[in-house]
Amino acid sequence: MNKFLDRFFHLSTLSIALLTLLVTGAIFGVLYQEAKPAIDAFGFDFLIDSKWAPNLERFGAFPAIVGSIMSTALAMLLAIPLAIGVAIFLSEIAPAKLKSPVGVSIELLAAIPSVIYGMWGLFYFVPIIRDLFGGLGIGLLTAGIVLAIMVLPFMAAVTRDAMNTTPDILKESAYALGGTKWDVIKDVVIPYAKAGIIGATILALGRAIGETMAVTFVMGNVHKIPSLITDPATSIPVALANEFAEADEGLYFSSLFYLAMILFIISFAIIAFAKFAFLKRGRK
């Protein structure tokens, strides 16, 4: 009886574990299948076509792709120096009493749902941008900044964790030669934690590119490549969020799935790259 139960338990857990692989594969498969009509209709030109006109049955993903890349790039540009600064503060500067509360606050920031970042962005940040730059206040710039604030806590936490792996004795050796805190960080901690820091950055990038709610409120969903950074634009997640429910017929839907497939492949690749190239868990 025990033998049977043992085998049953083993198989049950195995099949459920395999299920996760299956689902991932299914996602790739289903996305491809749904996107196929659009792939057949537009081919790779989909990626470089700038015209997105549902009523004309003409769909080009270029503005969405460019919007994704540009908003993410802007967000990373703002977030990276801040995140490294926060990580340095948390791992090397903060007195013991501050380390915990500040560190925990940063981690709690990461737990706030992205939809709330979006609401804050819409009601409180958009007017500021509007006052400073004119226009609607909704657009690439606002989206980039809100996205940066969203990505900051995660990246700061992972970077801090990477820096904390530097052995004390190595840091003390540099201090013992007369180094300042910055000398030690620059010459010992950062080279030692280099892989973890780069990995954290790329991982954050992978998450940022797939971010929907923080950006949907403030991007505008205009399928045009913005001429000014303050112009409304769109990104793949924003287009999906806004248009999925409206899409009424085949090619529109397929084009949206084509977008979803592109997004899935890009973010999967980026995250996998970060993981395998930089964030090895030492499982050898």
Binding site: A17, L18, T20, L21, T24, A26, I27, V30, L31, Q33, E34, L203, G206, R207, I209, G210, E211, T212, P237, L240, A241, F244, L256, F257, A260, L263, F264, S267, F268, I271, A272, K275, F276, R283
Partner: peptide
């Protein structure tokens, strides 16, 4: 097998949730 499942799960944890929504929509 176990490590592959671990890796895939790690990646899926950071994957765009809107894509998962699209997937479920389709099926």
């Amino acid at each position: 097998l176990a490590n592959t499942i671990r890796d895939i799960s790690d990646i899926m944890m950071s994957a765009p949730s809107i894509v998962i929504g699209s997937f479920v929509y389709a099926i």
